[in-house]
Amino acid sequence: MTDEEILALFNTRDERAILETEAKYGALLRRIARNVLKNDGDAEEAVSDALLALWQSIPPEKPESLRAYAAGAVKRRALSLCRKKMALKRASSRLELTDELDECIPARADAESGLEAAELSAAITAWLRTLDKEDRVLFVRRYWYGDPVKELARETGSAPQRLAKRLFRLRSGLKKHLEKEGYSI
């Protein structure tokens, strides 16, 4: 079924919309949730919640891409679950990603020029659009989807060490870009 057909089911309040979304994108959504939560049970919960969120938000929302919209919903839900759990025990995947992203934080040039995440998102989006497609996808797969380095190395046909270096260069590039553009956190 095409995305348009599934969106039409949402719009006509046909509950098959959820089943069809799960059938088409369930594997992707579970992967995203598992990458964040590292737990199948929690991932299932995040996917179910995300599908419910889609049902509640479409309409009035009219996503251009159902895949990106559903992926965003499950990522938000997974992170929300993760934050709750981190009160008890910090989830290792999130810790790992934040550790890596530490390297992208621009030097604090002005203590009062803090950025909102949305503003920073726009700056990162602009920077990503300057990269070649392979690097852009690689960055998004690692830091948005949270895919493991080993998995990405396998997909790209690189050695993990080489891929880790490539990611390091990308993070350094992002940091330089943010500093050059005058951003600080």
Binding site: L28, P63, E64, S65, R67, A68, Y69, A71, G72, K75, R76, L79, R94, L97, T98, D99, L101, D102, C104, I105, L115, A117, A118, L120, S121, A123, I124, T125, L128, R129, K133, R136, V137, V140, R141, Y143, W144, Y145, I185
Partner: peptide, 20 residues
Amino acid sequence: SEIMLDAVNGIAPDLVDEAA
């Protein structure tokens, strides 16, 4: 770093779609 992670999560949906 938490801000950075949230900021990456907020990148444009077309880039998320492209990567998938």
